[in-house]
Amino acid sequence: MGLVHLARDGDKAAFAKLVEQYQNRIVAVAYGVAGNRQDAEDIAQDTFIKAYKGINSLQEDGVFYRWLVRIAVNTAISHKQSGRSGELIPLESIAEPVDQGETPEAYLERRGEEERIQEMLAPLPSDSRAVLVLREIEGLGYEEIAKVLEIPIGTVRSRIHYARDRLRRAISLKNEVK
């Protein structure tokens, strides 16, 4: 019997395995939309809680991941729209613990990378970010993205083009400044 089936029957251990299995991908998707690590973790956590509450409504085990991604994207978009985004908090004021085994230099480097991606993503609206992360990071095709986000394929195409254009311009500008 599959993990999704067991989780639907109320098996918490099976649900924990699903969280373990998909957590990195969901955090990445949330990060792609939210643009910062702390919000991404909060969104991913909310996503799994919503999934647990609603897993009985899932008719087919095979669509679990697609369903989970849809929850993550919608949660991330409403998180940003509600103004709860951590982007409003100055980075210096967030005391973030250094991961286990991470040197201070590695931590600073990681923070630098995160700030860079935040800058790159800043001009993009949430719905374009969602489409971009599903295409470039999750590797989903246009049709699959349209199904996940429940939008027409033409909208997927135009959002991907828009997001890539903005990203390309942002990186070209950055390179010119260097």
């Binding site: 957590q23 955090v27 990060y31 956590q45 809680i49 860079r116 790159m120």
Partner: peptide, 17 residues
């Protein structure tokens, strides 16, 4: 490349559960 370092922090599953 920016996503390569993005993953859930240690103890994420425990916090969700």
């Amino acid at each position: 490349g920016e996503f390569a370092a993005i993953s859930a922090s240690p103890g994420f599953t425990g916090r969700v559960m």
